[in-house]
Design a binder for these strands. Structure first.
Lengths: 335, 335
DNA sequence: CTGTTAGCGCTTTCAT
DNA sequence: ATGAAAGCGCTAACAG
């Protein structure tokens, strides 16, 4: 910074003011300082400035794993949003374990201005640990009382998806879920609940099948259903990735979709369009952006703010994998 | 920190030493300091300490977009690796543009100890800008002379993939690529080159089809090929995501895979297994981990290190989408 | 083994 | 509108 000051022929304070866009600098001087900084490819050290401003310009992003499509998509949008607002994003992966990550041991304390926690199931322990940090926190894809949240109404969306199948005339609709039903917390729990509610409202029996998460779970689940006495006419998978596994098994077994079995997913995964999967469009990028705006505001304003809940719209996206149910129990040759 | 010092009845330096695990503190005193810090739930401010140690404990991760599978997978492994080594990861998305992001304006300078740049096509501008920063830099999924690199041999892997098709008896193998062939830089360029080399070595004519990136490109490209006078017996897609588009169009057109047309991709995308796509397994997690180890070393040791190249093994993963070629031009009913 | 002291690079009063 | 000076919280010489 001293070099820049010398080069521009001004004092340190002027450089600081000029580069920060603070008032009290002649436009001409500001320009000179700016170009001097550019020439030296100088950037202010956030470390040093945060020492005095007590703001780090950094946001901590807590999520299970970037590898999984949903989290990557949220992180993408969130990073972009924060980058626009001159905030850096530090990613902390807590892993798939639902047992509660060691948030306490993360160097968040003096390191970030705020935290975004994405869709973490172990909300209770997590919130406790985050409370200790006394950092503004936004929960993304999570709905918690008295906290800043950005999410969709998973239960309502699942009701819509189920109703879509009911409207087509389906009576035997299976639901593939990876979480235990009782005490089902989090988004997957809400979705299962939405399905059950819609089925109950239609006077239809639920048909749950517990599976592992992801495509492999979908394959196993659909395999089991194909071996059942009554093969359902429609399958609602808790996520698109699960639905992909379902589609795969159906194709391999030469079961026509949707003629013999309808399939519906949840998320609107990048590849859902390619595989013509009817699904619930979460608009994940919008979710990430909303979280970005909210957390940026909190990072600036500090922790004392009334909790704000942002409800994102989710909508049914009808593609080629859902249609009217087949007649009877025959699966093949029904086209 | 002063509070901790008072509470433990020692000086500031002793607190610093004790908490840092530095030598020269009586175990008894260290314990006293530790518990004092715990009681006050005090953590050292990395900001302040980095000011004097000149190490931030942070690594900058430069990539186009987290949203894309490959980058998310690399970032996932890299974050984990760095987290183990007590390093934080700051993500900077440069966007899909190949025009060269504004790396200069990123707050890297005094804010990170090292940089990992993943698979960015605009290497020339980028390296120049990174050089200005004088930060240790690791190029992941990129092969640059005189720089720290972690990558696979894309050309060799593409030769292997092509050879696999040749060995099955294919003569008419189309290659779907999203980058212009001349001056094709980066990984996609190397793959196209590998294909061309293997075809030349087998005495076969190349058949290039330029498409957009991703599934949509694959759909469009396969659509064009299906309308050609001679439909190729095999298609090599530059990436699995492109291959997914290809598979989709073939299925919709009731063209049997691999009986009528074989399809091979590149990457081993998460869903490749689900869709039985033969591909080149990059072992992306290993790539990320290797980059993590390397960059951690550089972050500690500083910039002056002989450039190190880590070549990751890539291998052919034969699944259900490749087989012997059909006889003649008929596409349907050949099973 | 422990304490004192001088900065690290920046922002922010307070003068000018 | 600009500059001088006093720290922000911490570490690293140096003394003791």
């Amino acid at each position: 910074m001293r070099d820049v000051a010398e080069r521009a022929g001004v004092s340190l304070s002027t450089v600081s003011r000029a580069l920060r866009g603070a008032p009290g600098v002649t436009p001409e001087v500001r320009g000179r300082v700016r170009s001097a900084a550019d020439e030296l490819s100088y950037v202010v050290s956030r470390n040093a400035s945060s020492l005095v401003t007590r703001r780090t310009g950094r946001v901590g992003l807590l999520l299970p794993r970037l590898q999984r499509w949903f989290f990557a998509a949220v992180a993408d949008a969130l990073c972009d949003s924060l980058q626009e607002q001159q905030l850096d994003t530090i990613v902390y992966q807590l892993g798939d374990a639902t047992a509660g990550g060691e948030v306490r041991s993360l160097p968040l304390r003096q390191n970030v201005d705020a935290v975004v926690a994405v869709s973490l199931d172990f909300a209770d322990e997590l919130t406790d640990q985050l409370d200790e940090l006394a950092l503004p926190t936004v929960f993304c894809s999570r709905w918690l009382q008295g906290r800043h949240c950005v999410s969709i109404d998973n239960a309502a969306a699942a009701r819509t998806a189920t109703q879509h199948l009911v409207n087509l005339g389906h009576h035997d609709i299976a639901y593939l879920h990876s979480r235990p039903l009782k005490a089902a917390t989090g988004n997957f729990g809400d979705r299962a609940r939405g399905y059950a509610e819609a089925m109950a409202a239609a006077g239809l029996p639920t048909r749950f099948a517990r599976i592992a998460e992801g495509p492999a779970g979908g394959e196993a689940g659909m395999g089991r259903l194909l071996g059942a006495t009554e093969v359902p006419t429609a399958v609602f998978a808790e996520s698109d990735e699960t639905a992909f596994g379902v589609l795969r098994v159906l194709r391999r077994s030469a079961v026509e979709v949707p003629a013999a079995v309808s399939v519906i997913g949840f998320d609107n995964h990048d590849l859902s369009d390619t595989f013509e999967l009817t699904t619930i469009d979460q608009d994940v990028p919008a979710l990430g952006r909303a979280a970005g705006r909210l957390v940026a505001e909190l990072a600036t304003a500090g922790i004392e703010r009334p909790a704000r809940h942002v409800r994102q719209e989710a909508r049914l996206l009808v593609r080629g994998s859902t249609g009217i149910p087949r007649r009877g129990r025959v699966l093949s040759g029904v086209v």
